[in-house]
């Protein structure tokens, strides 16, 4: 009887262990931190706005702006103020990151062809000027002279999206549009767009 008892016990234990074990589970120990390029599509992805989109879009916009005659051939570097990007998609995003990367790309590639004004720091700048005017801090120039520059252009953008979700999956299209606006005339002197469409389907257990 003992051999049968042993066999049955072994079969039962093996079967139950197999039901509980991690057989078929990929990376049961996880994946170590992997350094990737910002424009690379990683293994953690969604259908939303991701770093590779940010890089691709801002690279394209920077090239497009620098090829603009009003910028490329300007006698004096035009002064640009960044206006917040509008998010009209279904993806919550850090909006300023687009303009930050666009500004740094232009600054690094334009070689002085454009100048950006730090309007987001105006409160601190005005406070500093007032302290100089009051003699609370030193000044290398006459603080009573107005030296804050006005903008030649406003640079702004908008993200708009369109979503389709069916049993076959989710499809997200995002249109990234950027504009350079002349604040004196309200003319749109430059505009360009980038489009990215992504589709995905979640595992059946989440459907």
């Amino acid at each position: 009887m003992k051999p049968f008892l042993l066999a049955a016990t072994t079969i039962a234990a093996t079967s139950l262990f197999s039901g509980c074990s991690s057989t078929g589970v990929k990376n049961p120990s996880g994946t170590p931190v992997t350094e990737m390029k910002a424009d690379e599509r990683g293994f953690v992805t969604g259908t939303g706005v991701e770093s590779q989109d940010l890089v691709a879009v801002t690279d394209k916009m920077a090239r497009s702006i620098l090829s603009l005659p009003a910028i490329a051939t300007a006698a004096t570097p035009p002064r640009i103020v960044l206006e917040p990007v509008q998010n009209d998609t279904r993806f919550p995003i850090s909006k300023d990151i687009f303009l930050t990367r666009l500004r740094t790309q232009l600054n690094s590639k334009a070689l002085g062809k454009v100048v950006f004004l730090a309007r987001e720091h105006m409160t601190a700048l005005e406070k500093e000027r007032e302290m100089k005017r009051a003699g609370q801090v030193t000044s290398t120039t006459d603080p009573s002279v107005q030296e804050f520059k006005g903008a030649d252009y406003f640079l702004t953008g908008k993200l708009q999206g369109m979503t389709t979700r069916t049993k076959a999956g989710t499809s997200d299209y995002v249109l990234y549009s950027f504009q350079l606006i002349n604040p004196r005339t309200s003319e749109i002197v430059w505009e360009d767009v980038a489009e990215i469409k992504k589709q995905g389907l979640e595992d059946a257990v989440y459907r």
Binding site: V25, N27, P28, G46, T47
Partner: peptide
């Protein structure tokens, strides 16, 4: 927001 594609725990749950 990132639930698309293969998922090891999901595959196990389907077993």
């Amino acid at each position: 927001s990132n639930l698309y594609g293969p998922d090891a725990s999901a595959k196990q749950a389907r077993g």
